[in-house]
Design a protein around this nucleic acid. Structure first.
Lengths: 219, 219
DNA sequence: TAAAAAATTTAGACGAGTCTAAAAAATTAT
DNA sequence: ATAATTTTTTAGACTCGTCTAAATTTTTTA
């Protein structure tokens, strides 16, 4: 049984390690969790004692098999709740994150099973991120950043990255980008990496390089 | 902003004081919260500093106006979540309490408003307990314990009391008692206070005095 | 109404999670 | 390859909520 804090650290480490692909440094965790490195050192010792990560002094942490499983359970809950908030309670996609951060810690496997059923076993959350199934399995097709697409091509929006702030999502809604939107790349500016796109064949807009890296589309 | 623990103490004090009608002793709180009296003393000092209760050494605590308001918000959330679990997720009425104990602490007024709407502004939870409205107002008709009803009369089940254990609820389901059931009092035994009832004109059963005090019916 | 019993509070300690400041190790730059 | 810098850990302290044991107050009983 993990404490709320342990769950949050584990989730952060999972994300920072790209799902367990790489190891993570103390300072990265401290940044992500908005705490001090000293606090991270304390906590990674605890998670390491519980065999959810392996920790080597001065060299950072790696998530274990069990750690991955536990992290995926939390992520599954988070994304199911986000889906519920949007689909059943009519939240906007920029309003769900904070609430889901709380709801993801509710302990009740039955609740999650029933919620999954109510939502008809969704495979992606409102931001297009895949929802791990009951066994922690993720099925995603390939997703590439909009910025990597060559000019003249047309693609479909599959997902968008959400950091802490919801303002990026509000911006996307405002310019007309949503999951499933068709984007045509009209032009790419060399000097600042910004690109001009046509949304659903109707609306021309410029998006910054930064933004284009956080809109994930079909290859 | 109250901590999870403070919320739980406040709720317990609200219930023990019958909604703020009477004052509550340290030991009663300790029993209800399964903690030691010394811990209660510490906590009531904190709640008193926050003006949610008034505390007089050795004489117990009384809930304040603000304390009542805060407690009712928590109770409202608890009962809305229980209603959600039964109506939308098909939980049984004996499965909802523990999960609602967790869900009641989620902080998001918007969430509760939207949940209320999804459920169509219910006025009672699955056990028949009234759900305080947005302003903390409770509207209940009169409810009396089944044990207080005279023989030969017929009444409707309005609510049932739930203690910690869900076994009473399972028992009620088993014998066929539910919110809205019509009960006819056939006979009352003098020696042990048990009563014989007919449920929905179909099924005769004996219920103990203890049970009959926890089934609330129309007067 | 004084002694015994019960209830309550105080004092001091502990674990969880956090912090600051100082020490230690690793990295980088000269 | 040694010095300077950066990263990380250790040490010690603080808050929250809890506990035990001892002291105090209230209540009961004789």
């Amino acid at each position: 049984m993990l404490s709320l804090t342990e769950e949050n650290y584990l989730k952060a480490i999972y994300h920072l390690s790209d799902g367990g692909t790489k190891s993570v440094l103390t300072n990265e965790v401290a940044d992500a969790m908005s705490t001090k490195p000293a606090s991270v050192t304390d906590m990674v010792k605890k998670l390491s004692a519980k065999k959810l990560i392996t920790y080597e002094k001065y060299y950072g942490v790696t998530i274990t098999k069990q750690g991955k499983t536990d992290a995926l359970t939390i992520i599954r809950k988070h994304r199911l709740w986000e889906t519920f908030l949007v689909q059943k309670l009519n939240f906007h996609w920029d309003q769900v994150h904070e609430v889901a951060e709380q709801l993801e810690h509710i302990q009740s496997p039955l609740l999650i099973e029933k919620l999954d059923e109510l939502l008809n076993f969704p495979i992606a959350d409102p931001h297009g991120h895949p929802i791990p199934d009951k066994n922690g399995k993720i099925h995603t097709g390939q997703q590439v950043p909009l910025g990597d697409i060559a000019a003249k091509k047309t693609v479909t929006v599959l997902a968008v990255n959400v950091k802490e702030s919801s303002s990026f999502l509000q911006y996307l809604s405002k310019i007309g980008v949503y999951i499933g939107a068709k984007l045509s790349i009209l032009d790419k500016a060399e000097f600042d990496g910004s690109i001009e796109i046509m949304i659903d064949g109707k609306k021309k807009v410029f998006v910054s390089k930064e933004a284009s890296q956080n809109i994930l589309v079909t290859p």
